[in-house]
């Protein structure tokens, strides 16, 4: 699984593979919810990461407003903040951090880094969330179909999954993105992430559906004459909720990371639209002369991915403990 720089994709498979059993019949759901919430509230790490996630999401939503507050939009040049004699380096030390430009300015153009980070959050998060939503729907539907129906349906779906997962996906994503006409980059990124992302959800869901299909309550529903679709949507799906939530929280950071890597490599979001990975790429020639400019987008990328991962980790553990102690 070398598709991602850090192989986060493999993580989604790994964490939930431990999960095995499923949540059992859905009558105990409100207590499960309460138990998981209590466990999450008790963990400082989970709470800190949740706090950061909320903060970043709010920042992304309120980007236009925040930019009005700070006074600079992400595309606006500021010649007074940079020194043309020094090759366009910021006038002030620390990347030009000041009351005027909160996170400093971009060398050469003088564009406001705070505004670009805030708008970058918008781009990065909306790509990651859309990809996570689509892969989850596709993965859950196909995974349930394969796991529940078995036979040739399972064969076809499983072979496609094997094929996609045995693919040098990073190279392929890059090749695909570079061959595609410029068009709407964020949408293309979502499409490419989805093509290679859904099998990781589907594989887990398929396994869980197969084990759930053996349980008594499914048998009972079958015996009482419930239709196949009723069994899948009313009996099996509700019991997959926990798994799905965990899969989503772990898919989001992996998509944020992949989008950043693709943008870093120059095949993702195209300037002037900012994205964190692309900001890091822009800062590469400056990393020695203006480290702050390089450091800020990297820090945001790191903290965001870390928060989602920590949160997802704790969530999966909280849901897990309930099952084993039952």
């Amino acid at each position: 699984m070398s598709m991602l720089p850090v192989g986060l994709m493999a993580e989604t498979g790994e964490v939930t593979a431990e999960e095995g059993g499923g949540t059992g019949p859905n009558r105990g759901r409100s207590t499960t919810l309460r138990r998981v919430t209590t466990a999450m509230l008790a963990s400082p790490a989970a709470m800190l990461s949740a706090l950061f996630i909320v903060l970043i999401v709010l920042v992304a939503i309120a980007a236009p407003l925040l930019v009005k507050l700070s006074g600079w939009d992400p595309f606006q040049y500021d010649d007074t903040a940079i020194n043309a004699d020094l090759g366009g380096l910021p006038n002030l030390p620390w990347g030009g951090v000041s009351a005027e430009h909160w996170f400093g300015v971009e060398p050469q153009s003088g564009r406001d880094v705070f505004a670009r980070i805030v708008y970058g959050a918008r781009v990065s998060l909306s790509i990651a969330f859309s990809a996570a939503a689509i892969t989850t729907v596709v993965g859950v539907v196909l995974g349930m179909l394969a796991g529940f129906l078995g036979g040739w349906v399972d064969q076809v779906i499983s072979r496609i999954m094997d094929f996609l997962m045995a693919f040098p996906s990073l190279i392929f994503m890059i090749a695909l993105l570079s061959a595609l006409p410029a068009g709407n980059r964020p949408v293309l990124l979502v499409v490419v992430l989805c093509i290679f992302g859904w099998p990781y959800t589907a594989r887990v869901i398929r396994g869980q559906t197969m084990s759930l299909a053996q349980r008594e309550f499914v048998e009972a529903a079958q015996a009482s004459g419930a239709s196949k679709s009723a069994i899948v949507f009313k009996e099996i799906l509700p019991n997959l909720t926990g798994t799905i939530i965990v899969l989503v929280t772990l898919a989001v950071p992996s998509y944020i990371g992949t989008e950043a890597a693709l943008s870093f490599l120059g095949v993702g979001v195209v300037p002037p639209t900012p994205s964190w990975g692309q900001m890091i790429a822009t800062a590469v020639p400056w990393y020695a002369t203006d480290p702050m400019f390089f450091f800020v987008p990297g820090l945001f990328l790191f903290l965001t991915v870390l928060s989602f991962t920590v949160f997802g980790d704790h969530l999966s553990r909280a849901i897990d403990t309930g099952e084993t102690s039952k």
Binding site: V6, G257, A260, G277, I280, Y287, L301, F302
Partner: peptide, 15 residues
């Protein structure tokens, strides 16, 4: 390990 999977490697490479 958590930071290892969350840090983009191109970023730490240059740091």
């Amino acid at each position: 390990a958590l930071s290892g999977i969350s840090l983009p490697n191109y970023f730490i490479a240059l740091v």
